[in-house]
Amino acid sequence: MITMEHVTKRYGEGAAASVDDLSIEVPEGVTVALVGPSGCGKTTTMRMINRLIDPTEGRIVVNGADVRSVDPVIFRRHIGYVIQQVGLFPHMTIAQNVGAVPKLLGWSADRIAKRNDELMQLVGLDPEMLRRYPRQLSGGQRQRVGVARALAADPPVLLMDEPFGAIDPIARARLQEEFRQILRRVRKTVVLVTHDLDEAIRLGDRLAIMRDGKIVQYDTPDAILSHPADEFVENFVGLDRALKRLSLFTVETAMTKGAPNGKAGKVAAGTNLRDALALMAADNSEVLAVTDASGAVLGQLKRDAIFAV
């Protein structure tokens, strides 16, 4: 879907490369998180995909077309774009904001209005909001509108630059979870830029860890957390990488049959293993009863089973 081949970007003649001979392939329907410390070239890499920045060398192919061969303005209308500050147009209503790209594409007013309603439902906002102005919305609501706006013309590719960076931590976790659900429904090829490893793990099917304009490791979160490619990645993912890895799995994956003997704490089947382990540590226990939404016991979770994941 997106292929970058030996892409280099230098700002100015003889300057150090911000992106250095980078190659990556993002398959269709996959979410890739470009993650790394600031200045590692992740944003530049993303912005070259929709030609907001042109590479100095190398080739970028999106949907089978070399991006150099297309009109960048028309091309960008078919790529969703979400940024940290959202960038909603303050003089336009939410309806006009969400319908901006469809309007550029020449859709009829009826079609835009219908699509707006669908999108509000998708991102979990009251269609009533369509008549408001961005200033009348909370930060979280604005970010949802930003996502709706990016999805408006149903683009196959979505680019997101620190999309949840400006939102408070509690709302952020909830939005990330909702966004994951949305992505599951719409099946987009997503390139997400973030400096937040937890966000990358939560949203990315694959992570590309970047440093000094190069990709150091490109793999699934599970593989990166269990086998960091080098010392840099190991330091970047942190001492608690084993715990972070546990957050990728739910209690269900390590659950065994039968109920625990005697008194035991309870954990919901959908909880991740990291939180389950935290519960065990709090109880000083080695086993938890796994329950479904109604509270019925489904099985048990043993500490050894967590460590064996």
């Binding site: 907001l52 303005v73 960008r76 790529i79 774009y81 940024i83 500050q85 960038g87 550029l104």
Partner: peptide
Amino acid sequence: PEDILDAADGMGYGPWQRLVRI
């Protein structure tokens, strides 16, 4: 604001459209 211009560029407004509509 810069972020509004960035959003407009990224969404596919041409220079003239960006000037007139944004």
